[in-house]
Nucleic acid binder design. Structure first.
Length: 197
DNA sequence: CTACCGATATTCT
DNA sequence: GAATATCGGTAGA
């Protein structure tokens, strides 16, 4: 898979963008994370997407231009961050599920505490926490301060795919992607609430 | 390894 | 007013 530059995220399929994001780095202030696991959500046609029932105040940013963050509160406890892609007016997005903390480990640990290094950014809530992403960053552009986006091809690293996690519909679509063998990616068990089958 | 449950914005009725 | 949610830490087996 070729690298898809940010200015082409509007015109490529969300799955191509998702593959392209793996291996790239995102920095917020002092903390830099290499993206190791993502999940794709294909806009209004995807029953698992927050945008499935059309735009709402919360999902408004998903319908905006690509290259911005969509940050939402999960289960009242955690922040989770998506990268918006697809053209303006459509609502595709890629959820950041895991990452490796390459820089700013000390600052990341002020939020994540004393956990093994590979668990600093394991799980969507923890990635956002390690980076310090909250609703204050909702709608922020990836390429503008305090964020910095650095596209990096995964190179010869192989990419694995599997069913998405924690979604109540269309969990069978293999739209979770991760770097094979990457220690910051947990062997995620399927949600107990996910539809059997 | 599995099961439970917190704590709240958002959405639906 | 009630149900739901792109989850993670902890307890217990």
């Amino acid at each position: 898979m070729n690298e898809v530059p940010l200015d082409e995220w509007a015109s490529c399929s969300v799955i191509d963008v998702a593959r392209s994001l793996l291996g790239s780095t995102l920095r917020h202030d002092q903390v830099t994370v290499r993206i190791t696991e993502v999940e794709a959500y294909e806009g209004e046609s995807d029953p698992a997407s927050h945008a499935f029932r059309g735009p709402t105040p919360r999902t408004q940013v998903m319908f905006g231009p690509p290259g911005r963050l969509y940050v939402y509160r999960s289960h009242g406890l955690h922040w989770c961050a998506n990268i918006v892609c697809g053209p303006d007016g459509r609502s595709s997005a890629v959820l950041l599920r895991a990452g490796e903390v390459l820089g700013g480990e000390t600052e990341a640990r002020t939020r994540r505490g004393t956990v093994p290094y590979e668990q600093l950014g394991r799980g969507p809530g923890n990635v956002a926490s390690a980076l310090g992403l909250t609703d204050a960053l909702n709608g922020a552009e990836l390429s503008r301060a305090p964020l910095a986006w650095h596209p990096t091809p995964a190179g010869d690293r192989s990419i694995s795919t599997g069913p998405r996690v924690g979604v109540s519909g269309a969990a069978d679509r293999p739209w979770r992607l991760w770097l094979t063998g990457e220690p910051s990616v947990s062997a995620y068990r399927r949600s107990a609430r996910a539809r059997p089958g």
